[in-house]
Amino acid sequence: MIKFRRRRQIVPARTPGELDAMQAAGEIVGRALLACRDAAKPGVTTTDLNDIAHQVILDAGATPSFLGYEGFPASVCASVNEVIVHGIPSKDTVLADGDLVSIDCGAILDGWHGDSALTFGVGKLAEDVEKLNIATSEVLEAGIAAMVPGARLTDISHALEMATRDAELRHDIELGIVDGYGGHGIGREMHMDPFLANEGKPGHGPRIVEGSVLAIEPMLILGGEWGSDELDDGWTVVSADRMPASHWEHTVAATESGPRILTPRYE
């Protein structure tokens, strides 16, 4: 979805007040994601989850970022099992015990965007699928930790890649990094330059400075393969071998006191 414009020397920075405004949008996203997770039970459809998130966003006085974005027909992406990203909510997708569900959600408040994704199980997950999901959340944490002033863009990519390989060893599973998909700049637009790959060599790309903001979003496939296919609807991306996938995302600012998550989820 990201169209590159011109090369930048730094990842665009926001003022403290702008970061506060972005977090206000991000907190709405966090509430919508938790509402979806709490409602996800066997028999619930992904359309039901979309409707829940949509109402949370509207009730907060915000606008769903995804609805109508380049023609996307819903307020969230709802991706189940082998669907990696961009799943279109459907009344025909009925959740069952053991399903792995990713909800990707965005909201606009006072012109500022928040963007975050949460992956969770319905009922009890298979052991290897649970490990996949835990590992992906840990990889996100490693990427967030690398979001500090003075770093380069690909330092975050490298941190995500190394965390993936470490997670494979700790959890005794194989993990595939999805090629061609990753994080992005964000602010008054949902998708902005630069693109943030989920793997790569460190020390390259624009510098991260005080107030720089990125959406960091690892996507991992169980089994070590990284191929993906886009379905005929032009949106839904599935793993090529139809193995389960997990997707976690936070919008994060670099500050002198450490990374600041702008899409917090208050349990």
Rank of each mutant, 00 (worst) to 15 (best):
I2K: 12
R5I: 15
Q9W: 15
I10T: 08
V11Y: 03
P12T: 07
P16M: 01
G17I: 00
D20Y: 04
A21N: 03
A21D: 14
M22N: 03
Q23M: 15
R31P: 04
L33V: 10
L34C: 04
A35N: 02
C36K: 01
R37K: 15
G43F: 10
T47S: 13
L49C: 05
A53S: 13
D59I: 07
A62K: 07
P64H: 04
F66D: 00
G71Q: 02
G71R: 07
P73L: 01
V80C: 04
I88M: 12
I88D: 09
P89D: 06
D92V: 02
A96G: 12
D97Y: 03
G98Y: 08
V101W: 11
D104G: 14
D104N: 14
A107S: 08
A107H: 07
G111I: 12
F120M: 09
L125M: 10
L125R: 09
E127M: 03
K131L: 10
N133R: 11
A135D: 04
E138R: 14
E138M: 05
L140G: 10
G143S: 09
V148E: 12
L153P: 07
T154F: 11
S157H: 01
T164H: 06
D166M: 08
D166W: 09
E174P: 00
E174K: 14
Y181D: 11
G185F: 13
R188M: 03
E189N: 14
F195S: 09
L196E: 09
L196V: 02
L196H: 11
G200A: 04
V209N: 00
E210C: 01
E217L: 08
M219P: 06
E225A: 04
W226K: 13
D233N: 13
A245P: 14
S246N: 10
E249V: 15
A253Y: 12
L262V: 13
E267T: 11
